[in-house]
């Protein structure tokens, strides 16, 4: 049957593109407010900046229902295990935005108490600079992540590929996870 017989408007595309479009259009962030940046994250979700434009206004209280973790603020040594546990509780696929310099590098608090960069604990997809980043910066980081999802692979990210310098290959492999054969990409990066 030819497509010209159909009456309604339609688009054609691969299933993969559709899935990626759906994923990036409704990223649900987990509320992981830690410090100053959390206030700016809340401001980004409120009226003036309105994250609802990107389908992300639902900040989920439970990590089980979220697929984006915005690490907003400094991560202390005491909080680090909690952060990792919350990250582990999120279901795949999941992404992490490191918001602010404290989360990204420890910032001005280069001391005994602060983890010098959250990428030592969880793989980070996008780093947002600033102390604190204003809501526009956060929105820019989110749009960057959208681009990344749109252009990225559909399948689970491969070991060692994401996260600045973090060796995911050393991570324990979840049971039942089969590494894709190297060189085979299911998506076509543009």
């Amino acid at each position: 049957m030819g497509l010209e017989d159909l009456n309604h408007n339609f688009l054609t595309g691969s299933l993969e593109e559709l899935v990626k479009w759906a994923r990036r259009s409704s990223l649900w962030p987990a509320t992981f407010g830690l410090a100053c940046c959390a206030i700016e994250m809340m401001a980004a979700g409120a009226a003036d900046f309105d994250l609802a434009r990107f389908g992300m206004e639902v900040f989920r209280g439970s990590p089980r229902q979220a697929d984006l973790m915005v690490v907003a603020g400094r991560v202390s040594q005491k909080m680090a295990p909690v952060l990792r546990q919350v990250y582990d509780q999120m279901v795949e696929p999941k992404w992490v935005i490191s918001m602010g310099v404290c989360a990204s590098t420890g910032g001005m608090f280069n001391n005994y108490a602060i983890v010098q960069g959250v990428d030592q604990i969880v793989p980070v997809d996008v780093y947002a600079p600033g102390c604190p980043p204003n809501p526009q910066t956060l929105i820019h980081a989110i749009l960057t992540l959208h681009e990344k999802i749109r252009l990225g692979e559909l399948t689970q990210r491969r070991p060692g590929e994401t996260g600045a310098g973090i060796d995911l290959a050393a991570e324990p492999v979840p049971p039942g996870w089969v590494a894709p054969p190297s060189g085979v990409r299911l998506g076509t990066p543009r």
């Binding site: 830690l34 410090a35 100053c36 206030i39 603020g73 400094r74 202390s76 040594q77 005491k78 909080m79 909690v82 001005m108 608090f109 280069n110 001391n111 005994y112 108490a113 602060i114 102390c131 604190p132």
Partner: peptide, 30 residues
């Protein structure tokens, strides 16, 4: 408490009085 312990009092001893306000302003962020 203690999940956001930042060691600011220790950092404050490492910064000059000119820089000190930069440090303390991040305590009560509201």
């Amino acid at each position: 408490i203690g999940y956001l312990h930042t060691g600011m009092e220790k950092t404050g001893e490492e910064l000059t009085y000119v820089q000190g306000a930069t440090n303390v302003t991040r305590m009560d962020y509201l």
